[in-house]
Design a protein around this nucleic acid. Structure first.
Lengths: 200, 200
DNA sequence: CAGGGCGCTGACCGATCGGTCAGTTACGGT
DNA sequence: ACCGTAACTGACCGATCGGTCAGCGCCCTG
C-alpha cells in the first residue's frame, strides 16, 4: 500500500474514532511511521487529507440516491434502495461514522458540505412518501439506527457476527421499519397516553 | 440562572455539537459572557466541567437500568423500560449525543467511563433475551436509532413535531423493534400499560 | 468603617496545534 | 556517472490550547 493510501486509511479511522478536531497530524504520522512533514507533503493540509479520505464514500452515496430520484416509489425500488444502502454502510463504516457524528461541526469543509447535501436529497426522496411524525421517526431510525448500530458494533467489543448475517438482518429490519405503516393501526400506542413532564 | 448552571448548560451543548476536544474553554466563556478564567474559577478544570455537565444524565440512566436488573423480562417490564428510556432520551438529548459520539475517545474520563458501564449493563439485561444476530441488531437499532434520530432532529433544521407526538412515535417504533419476533406483533402491545415516566 | 469572602479578570506559562521551508536521501532514466 | 525528481525530514513559526496566579471591585457582616 502506498503512503498516500495508508495515510488516507489511518486518517479515516482516527477521525472517526477521536474526531477530526482532536486528531493531530502528528498522531496520524506516528501511526503511519512517518513524520508530520511527510503527511503534509502528500496532502497539502489537514483538511485536504480529510477530503481525500471521505470523497469515495460521498460519491458512492451520491450514486445510490441519484438512482432513486424522479422515479415513482414502488416496493421494488424501496427494497433495492435498502439493499444498496446496507451494502454502502458495510463498505464505508468509518465515513458514515464521521458524517453522523461530525457533519455539523465540519459543515464548512466543502466535502462534508457536499455529504450533507446528499443526505438532504435522501430525505427529500423519502419525504414525498413520509408525512406523519411517526413515519419521519421511522425513516430516521431506519437510516440512523442502521448506521449507528453498525458503527458501535465494532467500536465496542461486541460479539462479532458473520458479515452476511449482519447484512441480512439489516435488510430485514430496515424493510420492516420503512414498510408503509398504514396497515394494522392496532399497533400504535394511543396518542392520549400520559403526557409526561419532560424537563431538563 | 447562576453562572455555574449557565456554564454547565453551555458546555453541554457545545461539547455535544462540536466535540469535547474541539470545544475550547475560551469559546464556552465567550458564550456565557465571561472570561476563560471565570470558567476555571467555577470548575477546576475542563474535565471537571464535563463531569458536572453529564453527571445528572448518568444518574438518570443508572436508575432506569437498576430498576430492571435481576427481574424476569416480562412484556410489562419491557414496555415500562421503553417508556422510561424514551423519556430519558427526550430529557437528555445532548448528553446522549455525547455518549454516542464520544464515549470511546473520552473513556478515560471517570464520568464517561461510568456512563459506559451503565450502557454495558443495559446490554446485559437485554442480552439475556437476545441471542441471534438479528435480535442483536434490533436492540442496537432501537436504542441507537432512537437516540440518533432524536439528536439529529433538532440539529438539522427538520420540521419540528409536537413533543408528545415524538414520544408516542418513539415508543411505538421501539416496541415494534424489541418485540420478540416469534410472536405476532399485534399481541405485544397492551394499551393499559402506560407507566408513568421516571422523573429526574 | 473595617474587613473578608465571592465573583471575576488579565497577564502569563509551557505544551501542542497546523503549516512553512530549506535541505537530505534514494532511485530510475539517459 | 550524472541529474532530476519523488519521498521524506527537522527546525522553526505564529496561534491557540488548558491551566496558574496575583489582584481587582463589590457586597455583606461585625
Amino acid at each position: 500500500m502506498s503512503s498516500q493510501e495508508e495515510l488516507r486509511t489511518i486518517a479515516l479511522r482516527e477521525f472517526a474514532r477521536s474526531g477530526y478536531g482532536s486528531t493531530s497530524l502528528h498522531r496520524i504520522a506516528e501511526i503511519a511511521g512517518l513524520s508530520k512533514s511527510s503527511v503534509l507533503y502528500h496532502y497539502s493540509s489537514k483538511e485536504a487529507l480529510l477530503e481525500a479520505a471521505i470523497a469515495p464514500a460521498i460519491d458512492a452515496m451520491d450514486s445510490i440516491i441519484s438512482a432513486m430520484e424522479g422515479l415513482e416509489f414502488t416496493q421494488e425500488r424501496r427494497h433495492a434502495f435498502i439493499v444498496r444502502f446496507v451494502d454502502f454502510l458495510l463498505a464505508h463504516r468509518s465515513e458514515v461514522h464521521m458524517f453522523i457524528n461530525q457533519a455539523r461541526s465540519l459543515e464548512d469543509v466543502p466535502a462534508v458540505g457536499r455529504a450533507n447535501e446528499v443526505v438532504g436529497r435522501i430525505a427529500e426522496v423519502f419525504g414525498a412518501a413520509v408525512n406523519s411524525t411517526e413515519d419521519r421517526m421511522r425513516f430516521g431510525m431506519a437510516l440512523g439506527g442502521a448506521a449507528y448500530s453498525l458503527v458501535t458494533q465494532d467500536e465496542f467489543g461486541q460479539t462479532e457476527s458473520p458479515i452476511d448475517e449482519t447484512r441480512a438482518a439489516l435488510v430485514t429490519i430496515m424493510t420492516e421499519l420503512l414498510a408503509p405503516v398504514s396497515v394494522s393501526p392496532a399497533l400504535t400506542v394511543s396518542p392520549a397516553l400520559t403526557v409526561s413532564p419532560v424537563l431538563n
